Amino acid sequence: MFCFALLSLRSGAVDLAWSEFFALIAGRDVGDPLLQTVLFDLRLPRVLFAIIVGGALALSGAVMQALFRNPLAEPTLIGISSGASLGAVTALLFGFGSLLFMSLAGFTGAVIATFAVYLVGRRVPGLAGLLLAGIAINAFALSLVSLLITFVADAQFRSFAFWSLGSLTHASWSSLAWLMPWSVLLSLWLCARWRILNALLLGEREAQHLGFALDRVRRELIIAICLLVGPLVAVTGGIAFIGLVMPHVLRLWLGADHRLLLPMSWIGGATALLLADGLARLMVMPAELPVGVITSLVGGPFFLWLLLSQTARTR
């Protein structure tokens, strides 16, 4: 991850020589104030933001896959990401475009979507009801996002469309000051829940026999994921496949012990989003692609390959 961060800081439409890059890092003057602005005001907050967003998405995916005992579970599946996107777009349309209001709207949308999934899904026994309700609520929320975007002015439409595909262009020191401490604390709290997630691997009845109150644990974990993912998605838009692919790949490599899987998922997700954001900035310079397009283009075929390879091994 550290190497990808260095490469992402150095590379872009404004090229930095390695000598200039290390001179700026060391605090020396290189004679061009533009280079200092590009490195410290544009690229550094974006790199840090990619790290916390990628780590949060992958960690949330790992927690949800254990919680639902389904390797296909991720924040998008039960409407958390789409609900947060709907809340953020609604806030923007009504003129509340500040980071605080967008974060609150994103969290509110995530909670409402999750609560709707719970109300609908509990009518079907087992976890299948929640997953099916999540797919339906997710599709409905995304259709509302698309509908609301059509009502914005033409000048804003491209910005909205770019954001809806997933983008880190809104990363700044102010957004980091608000979201980074919150995200780190919640990520640490989720990593500390590895015991209950390991117990769930044995089954719900066995976890209850070990003394875990599963209803309370589910509520706490889902609310924590909403608090973690909702404000981030409100700023970045939808970034697909990080929360689905990275925990799945690491589980195949490291095993299912969440004491190791959770922190490694965070590191893997941060590294993956750093790499995807670097490609998004470099492929069509001086313009850039939405980072969500890169994660989908790479993550979709890669996940299909994993599924096909697993199917071939089980035959």
Rank of each mutant, 00 (worst) to 15 (best):
V233L: 10
C3G: 13
R43V: 02
W194A: 14
L39V: 02
L59N: 09
G203Y: 00
V145E: 05
W253P: 04
M180W: 05
F157H: 09
S172Q: 04
S81E: 11
L6S: 09
F101W: 14
I294R: 03
F96R: 12
A105Q: 00
T150P: 06
G166M: 10
T236M: 06
L304S: 07
G31C: 08
T90I: 12
G255S: 09
Q310N: 14
L261A: 10
S309N: 13
L197K: 04
G255N: 06
L99M: 06
L221I: 02
P286T: 04
A84F: 02
F157Y: 07
L99C: 03
V249N: 13
T311D: 14
V47P: 10
A256H: 07
A128F: 02
V235K: 03
L289R: 12
E74P: 10
R123I: 10
V14P: 09
G238M: 14
F212M: 00
L308E: 08
R195C: 08
I135F: 05
L77C: 07
I135A: 14
W266S: 11
L232G: 08
T314G: 15
R315S: 14
M264L: 14
G61E: 09
P125W: 06
S81V: 03
G243D: 09
W253M: 13
L244F: 02
R281Q: 12
S8Q: 10
L197N: 01
P263F: 05
P33R: 09
F68Y: 07
G238Y: 03
S19R: 12
D257A: 15
H248P: 12
A270Y: 01
L127A: 13
V152G: 10
G278A: 06
M246I: 14
A177Y: 05
R315N: 14
S85A: 15
I267P: 04
T295R: 04
G97D: 08
V229W: 00
V53H: 03
D15W: 13
L142H: 08
G230S: 05
L186V: 07
C191F: 04
C226V: 00
S309G: 09
A280F: 02
